[in-house]
Every structure is written in C-alpha cells, then in structure tokens.
Design a protein around this nucleic acid. Structure first.
Lengths: 209, 209
DNA sequence: TGAGAACCGCACTCGAAGTACAGTACTCAT
DNA sequence: ATGAGTACTGTACTTCGAGTGCGGTTCTCA
C-alpha cells in the first residue's frame, strides 16, 4: 500500500508501529488497543514508542493521517488508470468503479476495515482535531467524486432528478457499508459486489441501462 | 422505540442500564465504556449492575439483542404500514423505503449509530456467540429484503442483470454507510438521502424511471 | 569521529476494570 | 403476616494499562 521508498530506521519503526496499531484498532477499537501490546509485537520498548508519539492521541492522529494518505494514493492510482483507458468522463468513472471493485475483491483477507468509520463510532475518545479530520476526509471524498459526476452530467443528462452530492456520497456510503457487511458475513466478495451495485446505479442514471 | 408496557422494577433498571450503555458504546466503543460511568448515570451501584449482568460480555450480548429486537420492531411496523398502502410488491417496497427515510430523517439528533456496525469494528472484544449474532443479523436482513425483491422481480422483470441478494444487501450497506456519513458530517439528513438514493436504484432497476 | 537520532531499562503514579461476598430492603404470593 | 425470592447496597480487594521521568546506550551518517 505505502510507497516502497528508502525509509530511515526511525521511519521504518514508526511505520511498523502504525501498521500494527491500525490492525489492532480495526479489530478491537482504539481504547482496547494497549500500547503494551503494540510495542510487544513491534519488538520495541515503551520508551521507544513514546519517542515516536507524544501520547496515545498523537498515535490516533498519526494513524488517521496515514490511513487517509494511503486511501488517496489508491484512489489517485485508480482514477489515473481509468482516465488512461477512456477520455469520456462517464466511462472513465465506470472503469474506475470496476477497478476499485476488483482491487477490493483481490485483497487476500478482505478489506481490513475503514479506520474513518471506526473512528466515527468512537468520536468521544479523540480530540477535536482528530474528529475534524474524519469530517474533512468525507468532505474531500464527496468533492472528488462530485467533480467526476459534474463532468458526466454535462455530457449525459441524468434520466431522473438526482442530487449529485448524494450520488457522490453514495460511493463512500456503499464502501463503508460494504466493508461492514463483508466483515460481518465473513465474505470478502460482498464489498466488491456492493461497489458494482453502485456502478449499476450510475449507469442507469446516466445511460438508462 | 421499545413498547411501553408494564415493566417490573428490575426490568426498568435493566432497561435503563442498557439505554445508557448503548449510548456510551456508540460514542466511545465498548472497551472505553466504563461500568462506573454507567452505574453513575443510572443511579445504582456496581453490585446492582452485576446483579443484572454476569459480566461485561453479558452486557454486550444483551445490548445487541435489545438493539436487534428494536430494529425488527421498527422494520415490521414500516413494512406493515407500507403493505396497507399498496398491494403491489414494488410500490409497497418503495413506500417502505420512503417511510424508512422519513423516520431516519425525523430523529431529533440524527441516528445514534448502528450497534451492529460498531460491534463489527470491535469483534476481538466479544465472545464467539456475540460475533455470530452480528453475522446472523445481517443474514436475516438480507433474507427479509430479498423476499420482497423476489416478489417484485416476479411482476417486474429487472431491466438489467442484477443479483437480488446484492440488492438486498445494498439496503443494509447504504444504511450503515449513511449513518457513518451522517455522524461524520454532522448532518442527520445524509442518511435519509442515501436511503432515497437506494430507492432511486430500485425504481430504475424494476421500472426504468 | 562526534553529534544527534533512535532507542533501552527501570521505577514510578494514578485511575479504572472487574471480582467477591456479606448484608439489607423491598415485594408479592400464599 | 411472613417467608422466599427480588433487587439491590457497601466495602474491600486485585489487576492492568496509560502515561511520566530520566539516565544510559547504541546506532547512523555527514
């Protein structure tokens, strides 16, 4: 997921801590994720941990930043790929959705979980700036998908009256919901199939079939 | 939400504990929800708490049972209402979805959160039987929505090739995702609007407009 | 080669989770 | 009215993890 470039030793350790912590947080929640267990798995001491993070809230913030960053990287790559395959905004978006579904379906153990969604269900644990980050994350996703939909709507007038903001949000919605369903039903394929349902909807709205 | 019938004193206390606990769990996660804070708000002692629940896992189980029960009650009422307004399976489902969206939009502070979704992001905290309950909950939802879609598809052949299981799952998906978006964006109206997007999709698939 | 980066070790404080058990007050059927 | 539950209270205790402080050590790289 993260770009494999030369990381200093400190950055490597930091990254290892974050990866371990994220996995734990997605399975137990933030409060139940103890620093002791993280450092144990990372093979460092508590002092080592606090060298990298001021306190636990700092860890929370760093985790979220890293997660959002990784998401952007993936989405950017997929959008770029799609744009290379078609100049048409609608077909590019449909290709992107197919690529997205494929990538989500190919994850060996299924999607590990959305950290943003997880944080939303623990908002009282975090400082205001961390909570603002989840809000901002969703706003940015909305804006980015919305941009695509605007360009599509210019060329393909929607067959029904529909809010493009809502349609943009729906991808986040279906992805977050699909991840939850996939995890709950122990079926990694539910998420990609849900994304394809959203793709169907987009097709029906702009193409009618 | 819960039927207002005569509850014994013990049942009243139990219900009060569960309501307080659910609210806390949806905002902080299960692990961060302390028994001390629950009993403080409920006006009882720790011993009183452990009279009603064997341990914290028992509380988790009871919380989930109560939540699922309440959900069934709401869905049953809405389905019944919709069935009274139309004999046609498609129109009944569309009415149901509109009612569902309205109810979700009329909640004064927005939807408090889906306990099932919250549990999925903390699965390691719970015993196997509790985890199985979230799985079973989603399976039942799928089956119930699927039944409706089957009856619809008999009368209205779908305009596109589509899996009815996926379409059934999509309501859970959009609801769970919509709740997360609503909470994150501090906009209670996102959830009902997402449900209406799903309703659009259903209309487009079976009616074409 | 030396200065900073990246840790380790240890010894704490503090608060909260969870357990155990004995005792008490209330309630309701007979 | 009374005794058998029901529904708690009070207290005392163990355990565990967050977080702090600080001195020492080992690497890494310019």
């Amino acid at each position: 997921m993260a770009s494999v470039q030369t990381l200093s030793k400190g950055e490597q350790t930091r990254e290892r801590i974050l990866a371990i912590a994220q996995d734990a947080v997605l399975h137990k929640g933030f409060a139940a994720t103890s620093i002791d267990e993280i450092i144990c798995e990372a093979g460092i001491t508590k002092s080592g941990f606090f060298y990298h993070f001021r306190d636990k809230n700092d860890l929370a913030k760093s985790l979220l930043l890293r997660y959002l960053d990784n998401e952007w990287t993936v989405f950017d790559r997929l959008f770029k790929q799609a744009d290379e395959l078609s100049d048409d905004p609608l077909h590019s978006y449909l290709i992107f959705l197919k690529l997205f579904a494929d990538v989500m379906g190919d994850l060996p153990n299924g999607h590990p979980g959305c950290l943003v969604a997880s944080y939303v269900y623990q908002d009282y644990l975090f400082s205001q700036d961390v909570r603002d980050m989840t809000t901002e994350g969703h706003r940015i996703w909305r804006r980015r998908f919305r941009e695509r939909l605007d360009r599509i709507a210019e060329r393909y007038p929607p067959r029904i009256e529909v809010s493009l903001d809502d349609m943009a949000d729906m991808l986040s919605s279906v992805a977050d919901g699909g991840i939850i369903l996939s995890k709950s039903l122990h079926d990694p394929q539910v998420l990609p199939r849900q994304i394809m349902q959203y793709r169907n909807y987009v097709k029906l709205v702009f193409l009618g079939n």
